[in-house]
Structures are given as C-alpha cells and as structure tokens.
Amino acid sequence: MRKVILDVDTGVDDALAIAYATASPEVELLGVTTTYGMAPAECSARNTLLVLEQLKCDVPVFRGAEQPLIRTRQYSGTFHGTDGLGNVVRSEPKRAASGMHAVDFIIEQVRKHGRDLTLVTTAPLTNLALAIQKAPDIVGRIGRVVTMGGAVATPGNVTKFAEANIIIDPHAAQKVFSSELPITLVGLDVTRKTVLRQEEVERWREKNTPCSTFFADFTKYYIQAYKVNHPYLKGCALHDPLAVGIAVHPELVNMVPMYIEVDLEEDALGRTTEDLRRKSPGGPNTNVCMEVDAERFVSRFLSRIDQAFSR
C-alpha cells in the first residue's frame, strides 16, 4: 500500500481523482491539500470537503496557497464552472479543513514517511514550490512526485504551448522541475488519450444515490464543455485520475527521461520542454509519460468509481 498525499485545486477531474484514490486498495490517502486553480482557493477547499463527504471518507483536508508565486492568472470557468464543480454546488460541507497549512502538512509527512510517500499533484505547483522553499531537505527525502501537468510533444490546452496547471503558476513549476525532485510528468501527451464517455456518466446517474448523482451532475458539465471545445474526443479527458493511476500502476505508461524546464518568456509562457541550453550536462530530472494503455486504465478507473459509489 502506497502512502499518498493528493495536492488538488478541486475542479471536476480532481474530484474524479479523489474518488479513484479513495477506492483504490493500493492507496493509503494520508490527506488532501488544496490550492487555487480551477476555482478560487476557498472553492477548492470546500469542493474537496464536499466530495470526500459524499464518498464517506473522513480524510483530512489542508488549505494551501491562495495565489501564484508572482503573477495572478484567472481561470475562465469554461470547463469546470465558476465554482469548480459545474455550478452544481448547493450546500456547504459539514466539516472544516484542518488548521494546519497545506505546505506544513506536506513537509511534515515527507519528513515522517520519506521514501514511502508519493505526492500526486493535480493542481498548480505552488504548494510544492513553497514547501521546497521552506524546507529544502524534503527534496532528497520524498519517494516520488507524480505531477499532472504540461504538454511536451502535444499542443497545450490554454495556449498552443501551455497546459493549465503549469501556466497558472509557471514560476512555481520551474522551481519544482529544477529542484531534483523525483518527478513523473503526466501531461496532455497521455491524458488526452484517456476519455470518459457520456454513457458511462449516465450509468452513474442510474445508480440514483446522492453520491453518484452528485458526480454525474458536475461531470456532465465537464463533458458538455468538451463537446464544444474538443468535439473530436467524444468525451472528457481523465487528466487527474490518470495521475493517480500512474502513481499506483506505473506500468500503464511508457516514460522517456528528459531534463524538463518551464518556459518563463512571455511568448511561450508555461511551455514544458527539454532544456537543451542548460549549462550543466546533468542527467534527466523528469520521467515524461509519452504512451499510455488507455483502455486498461479507463476500465480500472470505472471499476474503482463504481466501488466508490457503493459505499
């Protein structure tokens, strides 16, 4: 069983990733840390608590960064709604987030569990960048960082170069990738190949439980946005759940070691690319996922989600 922290900005696919993690017997979910991203920071924390409540999981939640390190980029709400969950939230969670800051929780858990800990990030990398800044020793202690973000050999989804999690806080991302952390990058190169179809979401609705209906409602919004913006996919990409899947089953993907940097120049801001101009010839800093067994992953994801809804 892998000890895991999820670092999220709970929009729709983060919520699906949380459900997948809680239903995976290979995962011991120590906590969920939140930040701004697909919604404001307060919505991200609230959404995370609501999702865990529906899933009947009493996992602690820790609020983190409320803005990027240097510049602010506002999310449009196109794919996740202005509240992060398809504008379907009608209530407040029954419990509150922990009083401990997300950054402090990450540092504490890395020092406690060391190589046994996997951090899965499905949000802008601000919390992790701040943790490195505050406690540089964690870089050499953590077992693995699995990051959903970036687009190495495929177009971005915010600009022609950049993926959303990276461009929202590119300076944090560059700090993380230049830190020598053991990073696996789960980018658009593979996540666009893992697709959730509308008919599967309708099966959730047919279960007619509060949890399955809640998930079906906000995921429907996400799929409708994909129909308008990416009709060729015939569904919505499972970006964040795939990061959880690879944290547990790395054999799902083929990886290429690369020395990744994040472009901070305005004309290509947020681009994740191999740094061929680095002064040091040091080895790769990232394992980049380039191919995925999409059918196998989606099948496993749907099975675990069914288990989550059956609690």
Rank of each mutant, 00 (worst) to 15 (best):
I5Q: 14
L6F: 05
A15E: 01
L16D: 06
L16T: 07
A17F: 05
A19N: 02
A23N: 05
P25A: 01
G31N: 06
T35E: 09
Y36V: 09
M38F: 15
P40N: 15
S44H: 06
K56V: 12
A65I: 10
Q74N: 13
F79G: 05
G86D: 07
V88Q: 03
K94I: 08
K112L: 13
R115V: 06
A123R: 13
T126G: 03
A131L: 07
P136H: 05
P136Q: 06
G149N: 02
P155M: 05
V158H: 09
T159W: 07
F161S: 10
N165M: 08
A173N: 08
A173R: 11
F177R: 03
E180M: 10
D189T: 05
V190C: 04
Q198P: 01
E202C: 03
R205N: 04
E206P: 01
F215R: 00
A216I: 11
T219M: 02
K220F: 02
Y221A: 01
Y222P: 01
I223T: 08
N229F: 12
L238S: 05
P241I: 14
A243T: 03
M255P: 04
I260S: 03
R271Q: 14
T272E: 07
R277P: 06
K279N: 13
P281Q: 04
G283L: 14
A294L: 05
L302E: 08
D306K: 01
